[in-house]
């Protein structure tokens, strides 16, 4: 089972889409709200080298935005 962290904000529709995709495919993940969690926000910017959400960390592979083909490839769905 892959270790997955989603960095998101509560108002971001693309974040919602990412989480809906993971939920639909029954993939467990840790959801960090970068709007309220300052440490998570810094971690996200450091890991991804950019400031847009959503960001996913899938076993160390960083995916920026809602990239369905990339998610399917990394999660072997």
């Amino acid at each position: 089972m892959a270790n997955i962290t989603v960095y998101s904000t509560p108002t971001c529709p693309w974040c919602k889409k990412v989480k809906m995709f993971l939920d639909t495919n029954k993939v467990a993940y840790k959801d960090l709200n970068v709007a309220s969690d300052v440490a998570a926000r810094k971690e996200m910017v450091k890991k991804s080298g950019q400031m847009g959400v959503p960001v996913l960390d899938i076993d160390g592979h960083i995916v920026i935005g809602y990239d369905e083909p990339k998610l399917k490839e990394l999660l072997k769905i």
């Binding site: 904000t9 108002t11 529709p13 970068v34 709007a35 926000r41 847009g52 959400v53």
Partner: peptide, 9 residues
């Protein structure tokens, strides 16, 4: 996408 990214700032 301000509604997405605003909190990051």
């Amino acid at each position: 996408c301000a509604i997405c990214d605003a909190p990051v700032f």
